[in-house]
Computed example of a mutant assay.
Amino acid sequence: MFFNKKNNDLENLRFRYDDELEDKEKIELKHNKSKSSKEKIPFKDIFAMIIAQYAIMIPIMLGACVVFGLLLFIIVKVLMRG
């Protein structure tokens, strides 16, 4: 059958969403969100995340500055000779 490839019988076949299952998923999702929102992140962890972000961003920014500086040097010294 088209909708039920695994089983030949129709007992596990659902044509539309089951409202009870959908409501259970919503309730579980709310419950999980409420648990995670109550947990307080310590300042040490927040500070560690900030340092990690800067450790990633600073080399990228320095590389961008070097590329921009080389591009500016090429434009000023080579292309505007005259």
Rank of each mutant, 00 (worst) to 15 (best):
M1Y: 01
F2A: 08
K5M: 00
K5V: 03
K5C: 01
K6C: 02
K6P: 00
N7G: 01
N7A: 02
L10F: 03
N12R: 03
N12V: 01
R14M: 01
R14V: 03
R14H: 04
F15G: 04
F15E: 05
F15D: 02
R16S: 08
R16D: 06
D18C: 09
D19T: 14
E20W: 02
L21P: 02
E22D: 11
E22P: 02
K24M: 07
E25L: 13
L29N: 05
L29S: 03
K30H: 07
N32W: 01
S34H: 03
S36F: 04
S36G: 01
S36V: 08
S36H: 05
S37T: 12
S37K: 10
I41R: 15
P42S: 12
F43M: 06
F47Y: 08
I51H: 06
I51G: 03
A52I: 10
A55V: 06
I56Y: 13
I56P: 03
I56W: 12
M57C: 12
P59I: 14
P59A: 06
I60C: 07
L62N: 11
G63L: 15
G63I: 09
A64S: 12
V66T: 11
V67K: 11
V67N: 04
L70G: 10
L70H: 07
F73H: 11
I75G: 11
I75W: 05
V76P: 02
K77W: 05
K77E: 15
V78M: 12
L79T: 13
G82Y: 04
